[in-house]
């Protein structure tokens, strides 16, 4: 099952810029639920967005320096099926 990694609501006022700063995992890496996957930067602080599932990070849909919106899909994890590991 493919699970999207989305940018959560950060509680920022409208109009504040959020930028993708770095991916911690490469496409093809196996990641675990809760692993920090991608770092986003906003006014004077950074946040780590975690993996939503165990599985393979199959796709980046946003890249370093991209300006992001809340709810935007940043990437996709092909989630591991129950009992496959």
């Amino acid at each position: 099952m493919r699970t999207q990694i989305t940018l959560p609501e950060l509680g920022l006022p409208e109009g504040r810029t959020v930028t993708l700063s770095v991916w911690y995992a490469r496409q093809g890496d196996f990641v675990f639920e809760g692993d920090r996957l991608v770092e986003v930067l906003t006014d004077g602080a950074t946040f780590d967005v975690p993996s939503p599932a165990n599985g393979v990070l199959v796709e980046w849909r946003a890249y370093p320096r991209d300006v992001l919106q809340p709810g935007q899909v940043l990437g996709v994890v092909e989630a591991e099926e129950e009992g496959t590991r």
Binding site: L10, G11, E39, A45, T46, F47, V49, P50, P64, R65
Partner: peptide, 23 residues
């Protein structure tokens, strides 16, 4: 300008809807 901030400037993702209520 394409910076990363030092690790000690990292915040936890906010939880709950208190944010919305206050705003």
């Amino acid at each position: 300008p394409t910076r990363r901030l030092p690790s000690w400037l990292k915040r936890r993702l906010p939880r709950g809807n208190g944010n919305f209520y206050t705003e």
